[in-house]
């Protein structure tokens, strides 16, 4: 069976007919070609597929497209202002908050959710809030540093 869905993705209206069992991350990557949202584990553990649904961070590999019907979706592609990086993205660049980069889109989307809920987080706040994002390169130190710097830059604006 198929289901008709419509939603807003990065500010643009999207409508589609998809198989009922289609995962949101598959739809974003394969149909909309928004391949910045990554599939790491596909078992809802690694957080590489983190996006925002109605303003809250969720794992796109553990949600059906049908469940997102009528929702506002934001992915990593919608974060920058054209060629100008978002302060959080810039902070990851400035603080060497990535090595291979695979987990980075999910890290940035989680970072924005952390700052939304807690505009000036402590290091401990950030470490606890990154519970659902795995990085196999950095040891997290520079990611935490990036998020703290990004939060400061966002507050300054």
């Amino acid at each position: 069976m198929s289901v008709s869905v419509s939603m807003t993705v990065n500010g643009k209206a999207v409508a589609a007919e998809v198989a009922d069992e289609t995962l949101l991350v598959t739809f974003l990557r394969d149909d909309l070609r928004l391949t910045g949202t990554h599939v790491g584990c596909d078992t809802s553990q690694c957080g590489a597929c983190t996006i925002h649904v109605n303003g809250s961070a969720v794992k796109a590999c553990t949600m059906l497209v049908a469940q997102a019907d009528g929702c506002e979706i934001d992915t990593i592609e919608g974060v920058s202002d054209g060629e100008t990086l978002h302060p959080m993205q810039q902070a990851f660049k400035d603080n060497h908050g990535l090595q291979c980069g695979f987990c980075t889109p999910g890290m940035v989307m989680s970072a924005l959710d952390i700052v939304k809920n807690n505009p000036s987080p402590s290091e401990q706040d950030v470490r606890e809030a990154l519970e659902g994002n795995l990085c196999r390169c950095t040891g997290y130190t520079n990611i935490v540093r990036s998020i703290l710097a990004g939060a400061k830059d966002m507050e300054a604006r």
């Binding site: 957080g47 961070a57 969720v58 794992k59 989680s110 809030a129 519970e131 659902g132």
Partner: peptide, 9 residues
């Protein structure tokens, strides 16, 4: 429970 993304769903 779980992590922030799990708690949101």
């Amino acid at each position: 429970i779980g992590d922030p993304m799990v708690r949101n769903r």
